[in-house]
Design a protein around this nucleic acid. Structure first.
Lengths: 332, 332
DNA sequence: CTCACTTATGCTCAAAGTGAGCATTGTGCC
DNA sequence: GGCACAATGCTCACTTTGAGCATAAGTGAG
C-alpha cells in the first residue's frame, strides 16, 4: 500500500502541466522520553528494502488536503491523529530519489502528533527514535559524539573548493548552522544542518544509495531513509522545536495525566536539549498550562510526583503567548 | 498570461492521480508606511473583471519550486525578489472559486518581499494597500471602524444556530480570534479571522460573487479578490507578522539607507499596530541590527534624523534571536 | 527503625529585559 | 529669538530569567 514500485518510467511525457502529487506524513509520538516517528518499509529498487515515512498518493475525494491525510492515516494505522499541520511542499526535481518512484513531482508533507503508541496497524510500520536518522541533533547527553567528525568533514568540504569567495560562504553557513565559532547551537536549524550535510555529499541518499552506507558512516551521519524522507523528517523536527516554544502542542503527545517531569522529558526529547528543572516547572505553573489532579505517582524511587493534566481552556484564554513587539497604548 | 479562462469543465475525469498544480505569489512592498501587495487584473467569468494575486501554472523546468517562482516572477514583473518563502499549499476542493478556473486542484503559495516599488512590468499589475482587502486588520489609527459591525454580524451568526454546543464553540472561536472579551487582539491571527468571516458567510467570494458586493459591505468586510486569493493574502500577512518578530526580514523592504522611524513605520504597517518610539529604537540598537551612516535626512520639519543601514553581518552573528527554552548548562 | 539515596517541590537572589514617560537637542519657520 | 516639531538620551519601576540552595517525601538496605 505504501510501498512504491517503479512501475512507470520517469522522464515520461511529463512536460505538460499535470503533475503527480503525493502526501508524506511525519507522525510523531514521545514515549519514555524518546522522540519517535512512524516509519514503514519501502521496496527499494537498487539497495533492497529501506525505511521511509508513510506516504501515498493524494486522494482527491476529500474537501481538504488535511482532512484527506487524516482519514488516510487513521484508516491505515488505526492511529488517531491529534494535531495535524502542513509542513512544506517539496518539489525539487533532482531530489526525492527520482529513480525510486518516478511518479511524484511534488509532495506535500504533514506533521502529526499522536498520543498513544500502539504497534501501529500499518503493515511493516514501526516507531523509531528519530535521532537514529539525525544523530547530531541530540544534545541531551552532552555534545553528540558524531559532531566532531561531521565538523571535520564539513570543513574539509568547505576547503576543497578553489574559489575563495565560495569557501568563505561555505564556512559562514557552517559556523552559522552548526555554531562552530561562537558555540551558539540553535536547535531549530535542523533542516539547514541537514541540507548542508547533503550538499557536502555526506548524505548517502544524495548519491541514490539509501542503503549502502557503512556502519561507521551511519554512526556519524545517521541511518539513511528512502527517497528524500530524511529531509522531510528534518523539516518536521525543526518546525516542532520552534512550535513548542509558543504553542502548547507538546500536550498532544502526553497521556491524559502526567507529571511535570515527564512533560519536561518530552520537551527535552523534542528539542534535544536539557532544561533547568525548577525553572521549567515555574514556567509551566505561571503560564497556567496544567492543573493538578488527585493522583500521584508511586512505585518508582524518590518522592512521588503529583499528576497533572493539561488545561484545555488555555487554548481559549491565552491567545498564544505572543512575545515581542508590544503595541503602544495610544495611536502615536 | 496571468488571466485564467474557464476553458475546461471541472468534475472532469479528475479521479486518477494527475492534478493540476498552480503557483500563487504574494509580493509585498512597503512604501510611505503603507503595506502593499502586487495585484493583477483577472478575467472573471460571472462578475466581470476582478483583482487577484499574480498566479500561474507550475513550471517544471526548474530544479526547485522556489527557483521556478523566482524566475517566473522576475521575468514577468521585472521585480527582483529579495526574500522568498513558501507559504502554504492550498488544496480545498470547495474553495478557490471552482467555477472560475476548474483547473488547479492545488496551489502552492509563496511570499516574497521586494525592495523597490516600480510600476511593475506585468500587464495590468498594480500595487495596492493590503488593508483594502482586510480592513479590520489595521489598528494603527485605533480600533478599525469596521470591527464593531463585524462583531455584531459574527455574534448574530453564532446565535443563529440551534445547537447550543455549536453556538458555544462559535463564540469561543470568535472571542479567541477577535479578542472580544479580554480585548486581547493577536495581530498574527489574520488567517483565523478571515476564515471565521468566511464561514459566517460575510465574504462574498464564498458565494462565488467576487465582484458583487455593495460599497457598504466593502467598507466593512473589505474589497473582494478573485478565487481564494484573499485567503492567500491573509495567510501571508499572518506569517509575515509572526516572522518580523524573530527574523530581520523587514529590512528586505527597506531602501539601502533609512531612518529608524521609517523602519518603525514599516514594522507598524506590517503588524497593523503602533509601537512605542523610544523603546523601538532601543530594541533595534541593542540588537545591533543597524549601523549608522554619515547621512541625515533634510527638508522635513523637525530635527533631522540620522540615516542608518542594515548590518548584513547579523545574519551570520545572530543565529536568529531564539527566545524561550534556554538549555541548562550541564546534562541533567 | 534508621540511614542513605533519590526525586519532587519551595524559595531566593542577582541580572536582564520591558513598558512608560520625561527631558534635551537640532532644524525649519515666522 | 521664539515656536513647533521630530530625534535622541535617559530614568525608573516592574517583570522575567538563570542559577542554585534548601526542604519534603518516598524507597531499599542494614
Amino acid at each position: 500500500m505504501t510501498t512504491v514500485k517503479d512501475t512507470q518510467g520517469r522522464d515520461s511525457d511529463a512536460l505538460p502541466n499535470p503533475s503527480a502529487v503525493g502526501l508524506v506524513a511525519v507522525i510523531v509520538a514521545a514515549t519514555d522520553g524518546e522522540p519517535r516517528a512512524l516509519t514503514v518499509q519501502v521496496d527499494g529498487q537498487a539497495a533492497g528494502r529501506s525505511v521511509g515515512l508513510p506516504a501515498g498518493p493524494l486522494v482527491p475525494e476529500h474537501p481538504t488536503l488535511e482532512r484527506g491525510l487524516r482519514a488516510w492515516v487513521e484508516r491505515q494505522t488505526h492511529q488517531r491523529l491529534g494535531y495535524v499541520e502542513q509542513l512544506y511542499t517539496f518539489g525539487d526535481r533532482d531530489r526525492q530519489g527520482d529513480e525510486a518512484h518516478g511518479l511524484h513531482s511534488l509532495s506535500v508533507a504533514y506533521l502529526a502528533l499522536v498520543r498513544e503508541v500502539r504497534p501501529a496497524g500499518l503493515a511493516e510500520a514501526s516507531w523509531r527514535n528519530w535521532y537514529r536518522y539525525l544523530p547530531w541533533e541530540d544534545f541531551r547527553e552532552g555534545r553528540p559524539a558524531a559532531l566532531s567528525e561531521i565538523e571535520r568533514k564539513l570543513l574539509a568540504w568547505a576547503g576543497e573548493t578553489g574559489d575563495a569567495k565560495l569557501k568563505r560562504r561555505r564556512e559562514d553557513r557552517l559556523s552559522l548552522t552548526f555554531g562552530l565559532c561562537d558555540g551558539a547551537w540553535n536547535e531549530e536549524r535542523v533542516l539547514e544542518r541537514y541540507e548542508l550535510l547533503f550538499e557536502a555529499g555526506l548524505i548517502p541518499e544524495a548519491r541514490g544509495q539509501s542503503g549502502a552506507a557503512s556502519p561507521a558512516d551511519i554512526a556519524v551521519t545517521g541511518q539513511p531513509m528512502a527517497f528524500d524522507h530524511r529531509r522531510v523528517l528534518a523539516t518536521a523536527i525543526g518546525r516542532l522545536r520552534g512550535k513548542i516554544k509558543y504553542r502548547p502542542v507538546v500536550f498532544e503527545l502526553m497521556p491524559p495525566t502526567f507529571t511535570l517531569f515527564q512533560l519536561q522529558r518530552t520537551v527535552e526529547a523534542l528539542s534535544g536539549t536539557n532544561l533547568h528543572k525548577q525553572n521549567f516547572r515555574r514556567l509551566v505553573a505561571q503560564q497556567g498550562l496544567v492543573e493538578e489532579t488527585d493522583g500521584v505517582t508511586s512505585g518508582a524511587t524518590g518522592r512521588p510526583a503529583r499528576l497533572v493534566r493539561f488545561r484545555r481552556e488555555v487554548l481559549l484564554e491565552r491567545p498564544a503567548p505572543g512575545f515581542r513587539l508590544r503595541p503602544a497604548k495610544r495611536p502615536v
